[in-house]
Amino acid sequence: MSDRAPTAAVRLAAWRGPLVWLALLLALAFGMPTLEPVLRGIESDTRQVVYAQAGLPSLLANHLLVVGVASLLAVALGVGAAVLVTRPAGRDFLPLVAQFASMGQTFPPVAVLALAVPVLGFGTWPIIVALLLYGLLPIVRNTLAGLEGIDPGVQEAARGMGMGGAQRLWQVELPLAAPVILAGIRTSVTVNIATAALGATVGASNLGAPIISGIVNGNTAYVLQGAVLIGLLALTVDSAFARLTPARG
C-alpha cells in the first residue's frame, strides 16, 4: 500500500491509457457514419461503405456481452476448480486437472470453437459455452501456479497464528496468488475477444460480422471498420488489465 491515499485526479491519471483507447473505441463505434467520405476514398466502387446490417454500437455491445458473460463464468468456475483441487478434500484431482489445463493450452481456439458448434449448435449460447470452456484453461493453470507457488513458510505462519482453512484461503493464499491469477484472466479475456470475433462465422452478430462480410463481398471498408473496432476493444481491455497488474521488474 502507498503511504498516502492518492487523490481522485492522480488515480484517474493512472488510467489514462485505457481511457484514451476506450474514448477512441466509443467515438469510432458511434461516429463511423461521419467518416463516410474517408471510407469512400478506400472503397470507391461499392455503394455501401458504412456497415449497416446492424449498428456498430450494437455489435460492440453484443461482443462485450458474449465475452463478459463467458469470462465471468470462466473466472468463477476456473478459480473455484483450482481452489477445490488444492484443498485436502480435492487433492486427488490435482495432477489430472493440472495436466489437462496445461495440455489444453495447446488446443487452438478456432478448433475448439469449430468442435463446439456440432455439439452445441449455432447461435449466441454455444459461443458463450465454447469461450467459457476455452477461457477456463489459462485461469485454472495460473490459479494453480499461484496457489502452489506460495512459500510453505507463509502457510505455516498463518496456521501458527490460528487461522482456519477458509481464513487462510481468503486472507493469505488468494491475495498472494492474485497477480498470477490476474495474468491468467488477462490471457483468457484477450483470447476470448479474438475468438468471439470468429463467432461471426457461425452466425453471431458481433464485431467479427463486418470483417467476414467484407471479406466475402470484397468490401475493404467493412473489413477496416470491424478490424479497427476489435483492435481498439482488445487494446482497451488489455491496457486496463496492465493497469491492474502490478508492474514486473
Binding site: T190, A194, I211, G226, L235
Partner: peptide, 17 residues
C-alpha cells in the same frame, strides 16, 4: 506486445487493404 493484443481476424483484415 501491442501487436500480440490485436485479434488475429482483425490483423488479417487490416493487412488486406
Amino acid at each position: 506486445n501491442f501487436l500480440q493484443t490485436i485479434p488475429s481476424l482483425a490483423l488479417f483484415g487490416l493487412l488486406l487493404a
